[in-house]
């Protein structure tokens, strides 16, 4: 089980990093999403993997650590919000500029 989970996290991270290095905003956002999936699985695994164990002492033969689940929940909520923000920014950029290339061409906003 450990090998399966570890390779899944590794694969998700690799996919996320590859997509993040793309030149258009949509793949970059997808890459960030994949990366956050990888992080969530990783956080979940940081409390050790256990089968048939409730996060309550005495409810089953063994118990599992409840804290990583709370951490993952927080991380999911935050990454969900952040993905929404960056999507809105990307759409806003696409609608004002007319293309979704992510590289800047060096001209700064004339601060007015």
């Amino acid at each position: 089980m450990e090998a399966l989970l570890a390779s899944a996290i590794g694969l998700l991270t690799a996919v996320g990093l590859y997509l993040m290095l793309r030149r258009r905003t949509f793949p970059v956002i997808l890459g960030l999403t994949f990366l956050s999936y990888a992080v969530n699985l990783f956080l979940f695994a940081s409390g050790r993997l256990a089968l048939d164990a409730a996060p309550i002492i005495g409810a089953s033969d063994s118990y599992t650590d409840p804290l990583p689940q709370a951490l993952v929940l927080t991380a999911i909520v935050i990454s969900f919000g952040m993905t929404a923000v960056i999507t809105i920014l990307a759409i806003g950029g696409f609608l004002t500029v007319g293309h979704d290339r992510i590289d800047l061409d060096g001209d700064d906003e004339a601060p007015k």
Partner: peptide, 27 residues
């Protein structure tokens, strides 16, 4: 807007790294 997108993407990557580090620390 476009510079803002860079800023957000860079910091989201930083946040992911932060969570990996915290997961390791907790483990």
């Amino acid at each position: 807007l476009r510079a803002g997108l860079h800023y957000v993407a860079f910091n989201l990557l930083g946040s992911a790294l932060f969570l990996f580090a915290l997961g390791l620390l907790y483990a």
